[in-house]
């Protein structure tokens, strides 16, 4: 796969297009506009861009006030500050009154790389998912990011969109269909299913290919919409396989792995292995070295599928 694009890059481009078609789009940033890629919007629509300085709590509250006055604010900063520093502002000023704020967070996960654990959000999906009224989206490539951003604008209410710093392979083309609350089956198999999102989708597809070589047939589901979660698709998929593996660049506590575990436990119990950060913070390093060190690789997924299948044989 030759073409690559960081999801944050696609976000920046989507904002420019949105700005042109909808005058109510307003973008807020907390002194990170070059990194979050909102800088281009700031240049194109300076009258609708608010640099709030390094003050995330006030940024979220201001976004709430803008939304209460009919604007569609996108509030951007790194995921760790958006959901951590400003958690309670999101809870009480945005989620509780169900205000139409889009929290577009970049630099999620350990693929932030060299900045280390303080800047690597590994629990953001868990804490956003716990909030009533909140929609949580974790797109897998630039195409899906663009579609998720547009879908977020059509959706009335708060949305958390998780994006990354790292350039990712472009997986989808313009025919790709994205819908909030729907998972996409990218590959069909008979033995096991890998449910992934974000950075891990491309890796899951590679793992499925490697497993096919060994005669293990794997379904790959892209669950970009962590909340609302597509119970129906997962249940249908689960009924056709013997075991499930989840793959996320996030702690296995509270994120995609938990969402899948909850659905399986209630709807169709199956052996499950959750691949992700095993209740640990990240550290400084090159993104792909960190993915390797923390077990977020094709090789690890291959092993995980075999482990899950061996549980099914017990």
């Amino acid at each position: 796969m030759a073409e690559k694009q960081a999801t944050r890059e696609a976000y920046g481009k989507a904002l420019i297009a949105l700005g042109a078609e909808n005058p109510n789009i307003v973008v807020l940033d907390a002194d990170l506009s070059k990194s979050t890629k909102t800088a281009e919007f700031a240049k194109t629509y300076p009258e609708r861009f608010l640099n709030m300085g390094i003050a995330e709590q006030n940024m979220m509250g201001t976004a709430a006030g803008l939304a209460a006055s009919g604007k569609i604010p996108f509030a951007s900063t790194f995921a760790v500050f958006a959901t951590g520093r400003a958690f309670e502002q999101i809870r009480n000023s945005i989620a509780y009154p169900k205000l139409n704020v889009k929290i577009a967070a970049t630099h999620a996960g350990i693929t932030v790389g060299e900045d280390g654990a303080t800047h690597q959000a590994i629990e953001d999906v868990a804490i956003m998912r716990a909030l009533p009224n909140m929609t949580v989206l974790v797109p897998a490539d630039g195409v899906e990011t663009r579609l998720a951003i547009f879908a977020a604008v059509k959706h009335q209410g708060p949305v958390y969109i998780r994006m990354g710093r790292l350039e990712l392979p472009v997986l989808f083309d313009e025919n790709y269909h994205f819908q909030i609350g729907k998972a996409n089956i990218l590959r069909k198999g008979r033995d096991a299913a890998i449910v992934a999102n974000g950075v891990m989708v491309a890796i899951a597809l590679e793992a499925a290919e490697a497993l096919a070589q060994e005669g293990i047939s794997v379904t790959v589901v892209n669950a970009a919409s962590v909340k609302p979660f597509d119970k129906e698709t997962l249940t249908l998929v689960a009924k056709e396989v013997k075991a499930v593996v989840t793959a996320e660049e996030h702690t296995v506590i509270g994120g995609l792995g938990s969402a899948v575990a909850e659905v399986l436990a209630e709807e169709w119990p199956l052996p499950l292995v959750r691949v992700g950060l095993q209740d640990t913070f990240g550290e400084s390093g090159r993104p792909y070295e960190l993915l390797e060190k923390y077990g977020l690789t094709e090789e690890r997924l291959v092993v995980a599928v075999k482990q899950a299948l061996s549980k099914a044989d017990r």
Partner: peptide, 10 residues
Amino acid sequence: FSAANGMALA
């Protein structure tokens, strides 16, 4: 107070 700022900005 922050929300009031947002309303005034709008």
